[in-house]
Design a protein around this nucleic acid. Structure first.
Length: 874
RNA sequence: GCCCGGGUGGCGAAAUGGCAGACGCAACGGACUUAAAAUCCGUUGGCCGCAAGGCCGUGCGGGUUCGAGUCCCGCCCUGGGCACCA
């Protein structure tokens, strides 16, 4: 392949940008100038280096940043490192290397890789969450949380993962296993720091409205917060005047259908309620429930279990006596930890009632409760007593009436509940931010702000304590300290903060990264916030984004920030999968097995036999209907799909290799050309070659391959109208497509321009220069080089973005498609401003159209100006 | 089970309710070359036809409309999220 000297060109401009600090964003605010804060989700600098998924989002933001600079915006486009976290500590355990060393090494590698891709970051603003100058302020924010009662300690049954030696947040546990590594997780009571995110539930929910985020992400956050409106109702316990059971229900309208109650096994009243003859069974059940892991709880979903306490409650609406049970399908952590069970109109209660032969009473008409619970709307029935009646009402009306009645009688209150739980904020780890807290006489006492940062101690070994305590607990010299006030002996908190802490506020520090006296300067905060564009993976939909919003709101209350929300516009890039793989399967006898008989793990669905998977080249297959089959054996289907990139599958693409072979511009361009940014798409090395060829053609459009000089065809000359038409059509499409982040179609517009321009024997410099500016955000290295060759002295990074001149877009003639009964039958070419009558006439008389109208009656003529003509004939 | 996406050539994809398949890849044919690579030119949704042209075609079945990939109703498949939250 004859190629332009991309390696030399790319190195040259990377060096130029760094040395000249081309992308330095000035510290001084320029109030008159519009700002644009364009942010990537900063990476965890892992030991395996950059993945092709990283440059996808990073290129999208880089294009936007470079575009907006040329549009005259003051752009903030920084990069940093989310560098605390488990892998560096695991590595330390295995090799004895201090996490600090590993982290620094990985950061250097990541930085070099990012610089090799030509991203226009302001490297003077680089930050790492592990830097004491940074985590000093993470600790400072914790003090603010503590001050406001938003950080508290609790003895809670936590998600303890023995394999990782740490406690995980609910969000980090998937199906009873750790999100990282898939290790089993069990419940274990431990003293933990918690953050009261639930206090912000309503604001976190309400303020989603104003955000320019994908609906799916907003919806996921709404579901996670899980607001539900209902009522809390008190049930008296028969024979115990001082005991009341409070339940939460979203269906107070079904109170007459409550035939039993269920308390969670952990409910504080259980022991008091239990009668003597039931006490053994209850105690046994409670023990078992406590021992159960999350995994077991999930697995046992189908078979409901529970035990009768022996006690009865009084239903407040009709004074019926109903039995009180305990069962682990009622969660202690939601609502009041107790429910009234309405089996006729709740699926879970229905299953439980069936299992234990409890009565089912229909109170909403419309279903068939002999078959299943009915949860829909309908007229209320069987819902009257001497005290109150809601018979005949609809569900919403009944809810209202009964709620008012309950409140009047003092039997209940309207209530809003959330699924969202408080945030478990402790990790039993070394490599994290230490809590700025000491314990004096066992009581927590925050450090003074001027004592920050509280540094991590040096350690000899990283062996875990084994008890589940942090490795910090083993370092006596660090743990034991004194209270600066009283001189009393004190102990330090040995847990550290979770990885989320540092990433909750880094976008603020980028605005003012070196400020020694404040987290962020108020004037700078006012100018730069909120983040205008935030791009990252959808895997952070709930965790990072919810936590960061929570901290931001706290900082808003504290007065540190003046916006309610941190990230105005959010975009999730889609995952990049490995190359498409075609696979055929063979059994032990060497016989081919058709793909529809094979499950995802390569096992024969009929026999359970593990099959041998073999890759097939594209030439050996063909498409048969919607499936691919072997050409040689058309009845044998092959599986055709692309997989997530993973080391074990061996389909990982290393960006370094792509850069070496095709150049950074090609990688950037390909990642944008693959398809829409937000979509999942498979990698294709052939596709990289395709865009690489495009860049070569751009080079050869202007430069003699052999001499490296401008071609003689490139001249200072007035462009023709046709040339200007092509150019301005391209300016329009590229500009519009960058604004809407449709980068793939922007690139195709440039390809179309190139295909045209290649035909020009005489190539005006002014047209080529403008085209180079359009290309610059996408492929900045080659663009800078061509810009220079075209005779411009300075970097094009701040050259004004070309304006569209609409005048060049208008054409003299226009081609109008002509349909008969909605079917395309011909086309007419007419002057662009011609009248309706003229065009219809031209259409009727067109050689391709006239025969279709012969002998028919035209019933209707549809004329869409500039678009089409349609004759309806009969 | 519930809530979101998505389903268009051999592949990645494009298309304010108005010419389906732009652009790219792959494939095929040609030019250049001793040859190959690279490059350049051309063909390329399927079927029928020598051709002109015709018929079919955006997961499936209906509907609205002069006109539907696009809007509405009902399904199927697929990716992701949630899942005893009362």
């Amino acid at each position: 392949m004859a190629i332009y000297p991309f390696l030399a060109v790319e190195k040259k401009w990377q060096k130029f940008w760094l040395e000249n600090k081309t992308f330095r964003t000035p510290d001084a605010i320029e109030p008159g100038k519009p700002k644009s804060y364009i942010l990537d989700m900063f990476p965890y600098p892992s030991g395996s280096g950059l993945h092709v998924g990283h440059p996808e989002g990073y290129t999208a933001t880089d294009i936007t940043a470079r575009y907006r600079r040329m549009k005259g915006f003051n752009v903030l486009h920084p990069m940093g490192w989310d560098a605390f976290g488990l892998p560096a500590e695991q590595y330390a355990l295995e090799t004895g290397t201090h996490p600090l060393i590993t982290t620094e090494r990985n950061i250097n590698r990541f930085r070099a890789q990012l610089q090799d891709l030509g991203f226009s970051y302001d490297w003077d603003r680089e930050i790492s969450t592990t830097d004491p100058d940074y985590f000093r302020w993470t600790q400072w924010i914790f003090l603010k949380l503590y001050e406001r009662g938003l950080a508290y300690q609790a003895e809670v049954a936590v998600n303890w993962c023995p394999a990782l030696g740490t406690v995980l947040a609910n969000e980090e546990v998937i199906d009873g296993k750790s999100e990282r590594g898939g290790h089993p997780v069990i419940r274990k009571p431990m003293r933990q720091w918690m953050l009261r995110i639930t206090q912000y539930a309503e604001r976190l929910l309400a303020d989603l409205e104003e955000l320019d985020w994908p609906d799916s992400i907003k919806e996921m956050q709404r579901n996670w917060i899980g607001r539900s409106e209902g009522a809390e109702v008190d049930f008296e316990v028969d024979g115990m005047l001082d005991a009341k059971i409070r339940v939460f229900t979203t269906r107070p309208d079904t109170l007459f259908g409550a035939t039993y109650m269920v308390l969670s096994p952990e409910h504080p009243l259980v022991v008091r309620l239990t009668t003597a003859d039931q006490s053994t069974a209850i105690a046994h059940y409670r023990e078992e429930a406590a021992r159960k892991s999350d995994l077991e709880r999930t697995e046992l979903q189908k078979n409901k279990t529970g035990v009768f306490t022996g006690a009865y409650a009084i239903n407040p609406v009709n004074h019926h006596r109903i039995p009180i049970w305990i069962a682990d399908y009622v969660l202690s952590s939601y609502g009041t930890g107790a429910i009234m069970a309405v089996p006729a109109h709740d699926e879970r209660d229905y299953a439980f009632a069936r299992q234990f032969k409890l009565p089912i009473i229909e109170v909403v008409f419309g279903g068939d409760i002999s078959k299943e619970a009915y949860v829909g709307d309908g007229k209320l029935v069987n819902s009257a007593s001497q005290w109150v009646s809601i018979d005949g009402l609809s569900v919403p009306d009944a809810k209202k009436k009964i709620a008012v009645w309950l409140e009047e009688k003092g039997l209940g209150v309207r209530k809003v509940n959330y699924k969202l739980r408080d945030w478990l904020f402790s990790r039993q780890r070394y490599w994290g931010e230490p809590f700025p807290v000491i314990f004096v006489d066992g009581q927590p006492q925050p450090l003074k702000p001027e004592e920050l940062p509280l540094l991590l101690p040096e350690v000899e070994t990283y062996t875990l304590s084994g008890t589940g305590e942090s490795p910090l607990a083993t370092i006596d010299s660090w743990v034991n300290t004194t209270d600066p006030e009283t001189g009393k002996p004190a102990r330090r908190e040995t847990n550290t903060m979770p990885q989320w802490a540092g990433s909750c506020w880094y976008y603020l520090r980028f605005v003012d990264p070196k400020n020694p006296s404040a987290l962020i300067d108020p004037a700078k905060e006012k100018y730069w916030l909120p983040v205008d564009l935030y791009v990252g993976g959808a895997e952070h939909a709930v965790l990072h984004l919810l936590y960061a919003r929570f901290w931001h709101k706290v900082l808003y209350d504290v007065g540190v920030v003046t916006t309610k929300e941190p990230f105005h516009k959010l975009v999730n890039q889609g995952m990049i999968l490995g190359e498409m793989e075609y696979t055929r399967y063979l059994n032990a006898e060497g016989q081919l097995v058709s793909a529809e008989l094979v499950d995802d793990s390569g096992v024969d669905k009929r026999t359970g036999e593990e099959l041998e998977a073999e890759n097939v080249v594209e030439g050996d297959i063909k498409k048969e209907g919607i499936h691919f089959v072997l050409v040689a054996h058309p009845h044998i289907r092959v599986s055709a799909r692309s997989f997530k990139m993973s080391k074990s599958r061996g389909n990982v693409i290393n960006p370094d290799d792509v850069v070496k072979e095709y150049g950074a511009d090609s990688l950037r361009l390909y990642e944008m050309f693959m398809g829409p940014l937000t979509q999942v798409k498979p990698w294709s090395m052939k596709g990289v070659e395709g865009v690489h060829r495009f860049l070569n053609r751009v080079w050869r459009l202007m430069v003699d391959e052999l001499t490296g000089e401008l071609l003689p065809a490139v001249v200072d000359a007035e462009p023709t109208r046709d040339e200007l038409h092509e150019l301005h059509a391209t300016i329009k499409r590229v500009s519009d497509d960058i604004e809407t982040m449709n980068f793939n179609t922007a690139i195709s517009a440039m390809m179309i321009f190139l295909n045209e321009a290649q035909k020009w024997e005489r190539r005006p410099k002014s047209v080529l220069s403008t085209f180079v500016l359009l290309l610059a955000p996408f492929a900045p290295h080659i663009a800078e080089e061509l810009w220079q060759k075209l005779g411009h002295d300075n970097t094009l990074a701040y050259a004004p973005w070309p304006d569209v001149n609409e005048e060049y877009l208008v054409q003299d003639t226009i081609e109008i498609p002509v349909q008969i009964n909605g079917k395309l039958r011909g086309k007419v070419v007419v002057p662009v401003d011609e009248t309706k009558d003229f065009i219809l006439d031209a259409a009727r008389n067109d050689a391709a159209i006239a025969p279709h109208l012969q002998g028919k009656t035209v019933r209707k003529e549809i004329f869409v100006p500039g678009r089409l003509v349609n004759f309806v004939v009969g």
